[in-house]
Design a protein around this nucleic acid. Structure first.
Length: 140
RNA sequence: GCAGAGGGCUGGGCGGCCGCGGGGGCAACUCCGAGGAAAGUCCGGACUCCACAAGGCAACGGUGCCGGGUAACGCCCGGCCGGGGAAACCCGAGGGAAAGCGCCACAGAAAACAAACCGCUUUCGUUCGCGAAAGUCAGGGUGAAACGGUGGGGUAAGAGCCCACCGCGGGACGGGCAACCGGACCGGCACGGCAAGCCCCACCGGGAGCAAUGCCAAAUAGGGAUCGCGCGUGAGCAAUCACAGGGGUGUCUUGCCCCGAGCAGAUCCGGGUUGGCAGCUAGAGGGCGUCCGGCAACGGGCGCUCAAGAUGAAUGGUCGUCGCUGUCGGAGCAAUCUGACAGAACAGAAUCCGGCUUACAGGCCCUCUGCGCGU
């Protein structure tokens, strides 16, 4: 039931696209970045928790970059379950963040037991969009 | 066909769209990219560091029928013995109990070497209920286990006291590489079990691990406290050499190395980094075919072919379709056909190999045993 929707999603995103400069997504690797994000705003949804932080100018990261990290603790399940949850979140982030994310921000997506792996993909995308809207609104 | 036994394989296929990691390339692009257990981290190795080697002794840990295979093993194969099963086949920590110590609950008279509760027999006594002494272990009862079992002779009653058979112990000799098997003959029979209690014997084992280890870069510190060692002799202008001394691996011997007038050693406290590259994937390598040796595990030859290397950690996300299974509905005598919905396990490389163990939806194949049916 989704294939007709897929192109529509693509065209819709063209409108929102910010100037092409900022489309680079990088991955968070340092523990300190994760800790900083954890102290900032958070928004829970059905299938995941999203943390977002606007970086300070002093940090030595390109100002327009959008950075994203993924966390699945052992509570999510065994290695197979954790990997699957991370992959789905990574895919969702790849589709949504270049258009809906804000340059200069760090995002951390946290997986939930069963929910992250089982939620329909459309709904998972919706969750992230919703969370971003709430987080950005709270900042403004 | 039914019941049972053993072994092996597989672990959805195809196609869109969008991605990720690594190699090659200036680029376009192109090639490769999870498992049978990748798991538990239980054994065995390779590799690296701890400076290193030989022998003796001691300790600790492991292994434990025999032979073979292997780089090695606690693994695998073949065999032996014991036990279970009608059979195929399965199970067994399976060296030593006359080196020593220890233990053997409950029950029972008695649990390890000496003993006699009930009972049986004889003699004596008797208040005729029975009591005492002696003989005895066949019968009873207990137990996981009780001076071997059955029958006969024998006797006061009994007992390997004697005899036959079975069992047991020793055993010339024969077979086998061996575990072990057979066994003439001899012995009236003695010598209980537990070694997954200590132990003895044989064999094996140094420790730690890829966060090993090496290089580069940055940053911080060139900290503080306590303890301990040392200031030697000879030669030489000196570098240095020799000796004494100190230290080093459980210890000793032999040997070796380091220190040897400094800014070194140990412990604790405090602070900082926990980035990049190498190690890092081609090796006892996997697969297919074929030939040779071997009962087999396995070994050897030839030909072709294959190839993850990540590090907040790639190897995917999503959709369609086919196949499989189940439920419900429809058609059909039935096999079957068809529609809708649902389900599809255990599980994710982390230096690399050989094993073991554990988890696992569904499906497929081979061999053997017994019974039934047909020809």
């Amino acid at each position: 039931m989704t294939p007709p929707e897929a192109p529509k999603d693509g065209t819709a995103s063209h409108g929102d696209m910010p100037p092409a400069v900022s489309v680079c997504l990088t991955v968070l690797k340092n523990r300190s970045d994760f800790l900083a994000a954890a102290r900032a705003r958070r928004q829970g949804t059905g299938a995941m928790m999203v943390q977002a932080r606007k970086r300070r100018d002093a940090e030595e990261v390109p100002a327009h970059a959008i950075r994203v990290g993924f966390t699945c603790s052992k509570k999510v399940g065994n290695a197979v379950a954790r990997n699957r949850a991370k992959r789905r979140m990574r895919e969702v982030a790849r589709l949504i963040l270049p258009t809906r994310g804000k340059p200069g921000w760090d995002y951390v997506l946290i997986g939930r037991k069963d929910a992250t792996a089982a939620r329909p993909f459309d709904a998972l995308q919706g969750d992230l969009k919703y969370a971003l809207k709430k987080l950005h609104a709270a900042d403004a």
